[in-house]
Design a protein around this nucleic acid. Structure first.
Lengths: 110, 110
DNA sequence: TCTTATGCATAACTCACTTATGTATTGCTG
DNA sequence: CAGCAATACATAAGTGAGTTATGCATAAGA
């Protein structure tokens, strides 16, 4: 992504929505899915992603399932009920934001 | 605006585009115009706006005209040629960002 | 008269992110 | 088969665009 500043404040929204759409996922998988969905334009950094996942878990919005794959561990994340609700709220908040910005910048999107 | 985090990285874009559309404007006027265009949802803070205007001016993207209104001063800002070019770039960058986010979040906007 | 609006400006602080670093397994390639 | 890239987790230090707080001054309205 060109200007990483624009991404600010979207990380939680992205994580929550991707988990809602794709169900149980682990961290690395999320980065790959987002990369795919964004055509390589959004590359989540681990330094941002993992602390965010831990924070959402601590707040009860995500729960985890640790699985052993050979000798490697994989930590799956799933939305809880409050997590699902938040995902919905965050997405609509983002849509509102886009609509507001479209008015200010006088651009059409979609 | 609900989540001010989302605004991060949009301030320069907003200032440049509003100046492009409305021509010569002073700081306070910009805050009012943006408030109007956003239906009260985007309230630019002076602590962010003035430093941004000064920075853009220092970079030769804006030029100023100081006018005395009674005993009060007013500092008008205008886009320079590079400023106009940047305004255009920033807006299309933002549109790209919206389109990318729409793909990731699987939402329709507009 | 006193509060709100107009109008500028700067300094201290915050916090979500980037950058850097660390550890370890697995798969590919020359 | 050696070495690099990819997979997979994690945390700590640093950055920087914003918020919050503060300051000064004039004009308008209740």
């Amino acid at each position: 992504m060109h200007s990483p500043e624009l991404l600010k404040g979207t990380l939680q929204t992205i994580v929550l929505k991707v988990l809602k759409d794709h169900g149980k996922m682990y961290g690395y998988e999320i980065t790959q899915r987002v990369k795919e969905l964004s055509d390589g334009r959004i590359l989540l950094t681990e330094g941002a992603l993992y602390p965010t996942l831990h924070k959402l878990e601590a707040e009860g919005l995500l729960k985890t399932e640790v699985v052993n794959i050979g000798k490697r561990i994989r930590k799956y994340y799933l939305l809880t009920a409050p997590g699902k609700a938040l995902a919905k709220d965050r997405v609509s908040e983002f849509v509102d934001f886009i609509n507001t910005m479209s008015s200010v910048l006088q651009v059409k999107v979609g």
